[in-house]
Amino acid sequence: MYAFDYHRPDSLRKAASLAATVEDAKFLAGGHTLLPTMKQRLASPSALIDLNRVKELAGIELRGRTIVIGAMTRHASVEQSPEIQQALPALAELAHLIGDPQVRHRGTIGGSIANNDPAADYPAACVALGATIVTNKRKLAADEFFTGLFDTALEDGEIITKVVFPVASRAAYAKFRNPASRYALAGVFVAKRGSDIRVAVTGAGESGVFRLPEFEEALKKRFSPKSIEGLKVSPDGLIGDIHADPAYRAQLVAVMARRAVAKAAAR
């Protein structure tokens, strides 16, 4: 790790003003991607702005038919939240499948989606549920937020403050874990909100999270795993690495989609 300046603001206003004045600064949330990268000397920001003392950024709230999750809320809090387990159990399950207990007690939802790792879990939930990502400047629909591999619509110095998830009547997440890293080799989040059915895939796409329109159309006719039983996923545009080549990932995506639908349909 190279030397860097460390700032620890206790309010969103101070964090934003530091970001505007400190050059080459990075926000530190859970730090699970940033700190290892810095330790390996692959990243060398000249300053870190630690958001862990910004209390207004953490917390979970059920507001009517939406769940509002503060950006600095830990995965473990989402996993264990009675409100989420009741209103949107699929999201609690997703949080439970992230990393290991240490990761879940440190990692945050805001950090995860700001990083937009193509194998992270939350992007699939955001896109499938049609979440709104709220920043200190504006509100962004999930479809506009995730713009590519490790890339988002966030501008320099912009801070995610919360993520607003509409509650779905039926939803589920099925994940096939990378045997080494425990990230998703293929993760599929399925959500049904009224007539709107979305199937979002993470871990598999070369450009990050994506949807499966063919699967969505089939499920609109009947929300059942049978509706998508014969459907295949094209390996084009899928990630290939030593753990899974595009053909195998395509298979896993289709299988995870069926499992997610089966679980959601049973709810």
């Binding site: 990378n178 030593i242 753990h243």
Partner: peptide, 21 residues
């Protein structure tokens, strides 16, 4: 699970627990 994997140039692809299971 385990397998040390070098690419054709002799770079160790599985050089961390992110890739070595």
């Amino acid at each position: 699970l385990e397998g040390a994997h070098y690419d054709d140039e002799g770079q160790l692809v599985t050089a961390s627990f992110m890739d070595y299971a």
